[in-house]
Design a protein around this nucleic acid. Structure first.
Lengths: 247, 247
DNA sequence: CGTGTCCTTGAATGGGGTCAACCTGAGTGG
DNA sequence: CCACTCAGGTTGACCCCATTCAAGGACACG
């Protein structure tokens, strides 16, 4: 169905990498990093850049997955909804990460932009064929699935056993660990989304943040940013050894 | 390092399947089902049958994973431990399922037998090489990782948002769904393990079970078994029906 | 028959939920 | 410029459900 990709892949080593790939901020991350230039050229033929505005939802739980995507900039959330309408966020996806089921199947999560995002989107059909031709890519996807599983299981422990302060601290550490060199970080989640992720209420999240602020562990210069003032204490509260993020 | 497997795989279509595979109860499930006889013969060369007694732990969180395994009979739990010693079970693994990281990496979970188990164990090094030669096997492992991820995320929702009755009901439904035709089921988890899995205390688990029993939703003929008397109500409770009162 | 382990049940406690009031800042219109 | 609105966030008071603490039961073991 997308077999044209084969010839594109084989179109000779001299052909240049498309500009969008050559200068892509995630060229050296995740899925794309695993591919040599010529394979990436084949992949890029069917890749489509797409912007997703903050709050927009990409597709819905229960649908067959029509596509897979890599995040170029911004952050996405994966969330599932209960009958009663309450939402549980089951994953955060940042730049360089991949979402989707290249082998098909239905997903049970909704994908929503927390930021204005830039995505690199592939039709799932094409990707399935492409992966069949590039086993090294399958390995990368598999490893990411395993990493996602690890991270989901760490959150399970937190949700099952963690107190409110542990959960909120863990979320902050998680956000902070994505840019370890900075102390000030964007906080693309609203209080309501933080509540959905931690399994708490917005009031409890707010109270914990205030406690951390009063204890001078963090500062909250604006609604959508925070500053880590005492990372050690924060990681300690989160119940994790420092430098060991939830990914 | 295990390249001898290659010649074993190619040793001609006439060679018979080893007895332990031919009569294996999971020959048609999971990983093994994806392989034709001759490939399975190659795999079986390095497979080792091993029994694990109830309560025995196979290996420990934080270690590099030395092996991968398929469950032949019995049930395993995957659990992670917090600094304070509290345990959170992050997965139950039944017959036919696969555990491990065929591509290497460290695991953060302990693997413990809930029952007396029979396992089919592979050295991780060998499996990595074998998978490289059998892309169709990679696909199966990938799909299982995705399924595990889905299930972990469902539990995340339950742990984050579910009440005590929802969690306990969900665990019973989960156990019951493994043998849909039966109404009476083995319950290989102790109360303490049920508590670890649901993120509750043993007292709360016990109270919920008693409530279900008094409401004639289940019966508890012995400590390690239960009988579903009203599956519809049970699934309804597990599905997070808001404010369901059993008094 | 005593002892230990696991389970059940009861009563008291407390952490987080719920409800409600208030605050803050961005927009909007005069 | 201020007044107004409105959504999102904060804070307080109260309450409820699960935990904690404590006692007792069921069952297997020597």
């Amino acid at each position: 169905m997308y077999l044209g990709a084969k010839s594109a892949t084989d179109s000779g080593p001299a052909a240049p990498l498309p500009v969008r790939c050559a200068f892509c901020p995630v060229r050296r991350q995740g899925m794309c990093a695993a591919l040599p230039d010529d394979a990436l050229r084949g992949l890029s033929v069917f890749a489509r850049r797409r912007k997703l505005e903050k709050g927009q939802t990409l597709h819905w739980e229960g649908d067959a997955v029509p596509l897979a995507l890599a995040v170029v900039t911004g952050m996405l959330k994966l969330a599932s909804t209960a009958q009663d309408g309450s939402e549980q966020i089951v994953g955060l996806v940042g730049a360089g990460s991949f979402v989707g089921k290249p082998l098909g199947g239905t997903t049970h999560e909704r994908i929503t932009a927390l930021d204005d995002c830039e995505l690199c989107v592939f039709p799932a059909d094409f990707l399935r064929d492409f992966v069949a031709m590039h086993p090294e890519m399958m390995a990368v996807l598999f490893e990411q699935a395993i990493a996602d599983l690890d991270s989901a299981r760490r959150w399970m422990r937190l949700l099952g056993r963690g107190s409110a302060s542990e959960r909120v601290a863990a979320l902050l550490v998680e956000m902070a660990s994505r840019r370890p060199d900075e102390t000030r970080h964007r906080l693309p989640l609203s209080r309501s989304e933080m509540a959905d992720f931690t399994g708490l209420t917005i009031e409890t999240v707010s109270r914990q943040l205030s406690r951390f602020r009063h204890a001078d562990i963090i500062a909250l210069p604006s609604r959508d940013s925070f500053e880590v003032r005492d990372l050690e204490t924060l990681t300690q509260i989160a119940g994790m050894t420092p430098g060991y993020g939830l990914h």
